[in-house]
Simulated assay, not measured.
Amino acid sequence: MADFVREVMTPGVVAVRPDASLVEAAQLMRTQDIGDVLVADGQRIVGVLTDRDITVRAVAEGIDPLTVSARSVCTPDPVVIGPDDPVGTAVALMRTHAVRRLPVVEDGLPVGVVSLADLAVAEDPDSALAEIGRAEPTGGATA
């Protein structure tokens, strides 16, 4: 099992400006084949925006995704973790704050994201969640 967040996180960051439209954010998610982006004002993380946020907080409410900003739909002021923090701390933070992803910040700059699936792979590589986390996206799945 991994000891530190750095060993399990997904390195690199994909971000949008706070004023980016939800369409812009969704297109970036599709292009990068990811389910979330950081919302950043310069180097400062102001939120995390997931594909589910776009669906539940905007589309399901009838809000036009062309005219609403990432900042208005994202989860603001996300809980963050450092790359040298113990994996157990990431688990505890996710549990306490009921989140599935934590931005990883080093020296004030985002350097990656650690997800529930990342932790599942590290903790129990044979678990169903770990298998799902390792699976290649299908690109067109509807289930």
Rank of each mutant, 00 (worst) to 15 (best):
A2N: 15
D3Q: 10
D3C: 08
D3Y: 02
E7S: 13
E7Q: 15
M9W: 07
M9G: 06
M9I: 09
M9D: 03
T10E: 08
T10S: 15
P11T: 13
G12R: 11
G12S: 11
V13A: 14
V14T: 13
V14G: 04
R17Q: 10
R17T: 15
P18T: 09
D19N: 07
E24A: 11
E24L: 08
A25E: 03
Q27W: 13
M29P: 00
T31M: 11
D33T: 08
D33N: 15
I34R: 02
I34K: 01
I34F: 11
G35E: 08
V37G: 01
V37Y: 02
V39P: 02
V39H: 03
D41H: 00
G42P: 12
Q43M: 08
Q43D: 14
Q43E: 12
V46Q: 01
G47L: 01
V48Q: 01
L49E: 02
T50P: 00
T50V: 10
T50Q: 00
D51N: 09
D51S: 10
R52T: 07
R52A: 05
V56I: 04
R57A: 06
A58M: 06
V59L: 10
V59C: 01
V59G: 02
A60V: 06
A60N: 07
E61I: 07
G62Y: 09
G62W: 04
I63R: 14
D64L: 08
L66N: 15
T67I: 10
T67K: 13
T67E: 11
V68R: 14
V68A: 10
S69V: 02
S72D: 14
S72W: 04
S72T: 02
C74N: 01
C74E: 03
D77W: 03
D77Y: 00
P78W: 00
V79D: 01
V80H: 05
G82D: 04
G82F: 00
P83N: 03
D84K: 05
D85R: 14
D85Y: 09
P86V: 00
P86T: 00
V87H: 07
G88T: 04
G88H: 06
T89D: 06
R95D: 11
R95Q: 12
T96I: 13
T96W: 09
T96M: 10
H97C: 04
R101N: 06
P103E: 06
E106T: 05
D107Y: 13
D107C: 13
P110Y: 11
V111Y: 13
G112W: 03
V113L: 09
S115D: 07
L116A: 13
A117H: 06
A117G: 11
A117I: 04
D118E: 06
D118F: 05
D118A: 07
A120H: 06
V121Q: 05
D124G: 08
P125A: 15
P125K: 15
D126I: 14
S127Q: 11
S127A: 14
S127E: 12
S127H: 12
L129N: 07
L129R: 06
L129D: 04
A130M: 01
I132Q: 02
R134I: 08
E136W: 04
E136V: 15
E136N: 08
P137E: 11
G139P: 03
G139I: 03
G139F: 01
G140I: 15
A141P: 05
